[in-house]
């Protein structure tokens, strides 16, 4: 059973690069303002969600284990 993720977008940072939307298309989608929004945290495998978070040029994506609260991205010191 894959763990459940909590994913948050910092809208002061998101510039709508679209990189997360292309990387994990079933998790992230552009909203009307062309910023990213999370449509389904379980839409793609965790690996792709983390790849999207890594790929974000603005460090705008935060990922946690929804049950334990463990921070999965960004790594400590880099937020």
């Amino acid at each position: 059973m894959a763990r459940r993720l909590r994913i948050a977008i910092d809208y002061d940072r998101c510039v709508g690069s679209g990189i997360c939307v292309l990387t994990a298309p079933h998790v992230f989608e552009f909203n009307d303002q062309r910023q990213s929004s999370v449509i389904d945290p379980t839409g793609d495998p965790e690996e792709l969600v983390l790849e999207a978070a890594h790929g974000c040029p603005q460090m705008a994506i935060f990922v946690e284990d929804a049950d334990t609260g463990e921070r999965l991205f960004p790594p400590p010191g880099l937020e």
Binding site: D12, R13, V15, G16, S17, G18, P57
Partner: peptide, 19 residues
Amino acid sequence: TPNPHVAFGHGIHICLGAP
């Protein structure tokens, strides 16, 4: 903070070298 400036551009052409 926050500081949502557009010095690196915005949207799909956001500066590749920004980091």
